[in-house]
Design a protein around this nucleic acid. Structure first.
Lengths: 157, 157
DNA sequence: ATGAGTGCAAATGCTTTGCATCCTG
DNA sequence: CAGGATGCAAAGCATTTGCACTCAT
């Protein structure tokens, strides 16, 4: 396996997500299939808007609300993650494996950061009294390579 | 003294923030003084809206835009933190010391989590190639005590 | 006085919703 | 065939901005 192994091939990921859609009692429509296919192959953590625009190519006429609602349904079903790590639009991540994120303060881009060891996270659970910890996330804040080369940009998608 | 000692007294924090305002070349207006005073005494990580409403009591007629712009100026000057850890409104934190946050998935509430050791964070720097890490943040995701007692709520402020 | 700050309102952008129609299961 | 899903448009919030006026420096 590669150094940073994709947990699954694109096809396998699509198949597993589609299976998850049905397993969750959600209906499998042409739109949802296209959305899942598009998201599964996207490692850029796209916003709903970005995914929508890419989707228009393969599914002309699809509604933005449908994309939005479907992404919400997918994340609610635990089939993808909805990330709100920076101001502006939420970003969606098809990778449900354990990993962290690096967020660019300049452009809002989100990059994956592989987990080195699951141990430290589990060990440090706890949080405030009465607070039930579901997950511990590590966020790397900084400036991405592109923005470093080209200073001063908006922090939006 | 309280169980969880504030690093500084309210008054000291206010004084340091006001000094910072002037040191940053920002003008010290009645509105800004009130905003700083209000924020410095608030450990609930209020949204701009929440702070604005509380502020209306002591400074009737203050404009929401002013509160908003001032919070932006303060965080840009490094005098407070602007947190975007959940969907919805940004939250503001007067505590600039090293600490982490616990975010309730149900109601969006943000709680402070003291840092146990600064070592682990620094050691794990790095992030994606070409990415300049400025800070590493740990976010505890879960459900707060209040929401645990009263299930099913909106995730907004 | 000079220009940053303020208040007001309107504009943007992201997200959500109502409703009539369509289509999966 | 029933209820969920879609498309469209409009409504809701969060955030930002333009502009005339005020005030801190």
């Amino acid at each position: 396996m590669p150094v940073r192994p994709s947990p699954e091939s694109h096809e396998a990921l699509v198949a597993r997500m589609l299976a998850g859609v049905r397993a969750s009692g959600l209906k499998l429509t042409r739109q949802r299939e296209a959305i899942v296919h598009e998201l599964a192959g996207d490692e850029t953590h796209p916003t709903a808007q970005a995914l929508f625009e890419r989707l228009l190519v393969r599914l002309p006429g699809v509604s933005f609300a449908t994309v939005y609602n479907t992404l919400d349904a997918l994340s609610s079903a635990g089939l993808c993650a909805s990330l709100s790590l920076a101001p502006g639009a939420a970003r969606f991540d098809p990778n449900m494996g354990a990993h962290h994120h690096a967020v660019c303060d300049e452009c809002g881009t989100v990059l994956d950061v592989p987990t080195r060891d699951g141990a430290s996270e589990r060990a440090s659970a706890g949080g405030p009294p009465g607070f039930t910890v579901r997950a511990i996330e590590r966020v790397y804040r900084g400036v991405c390579a592109a923005c470093r080369a080209r200073p001063r940009r908006s922090a939006r998608s």
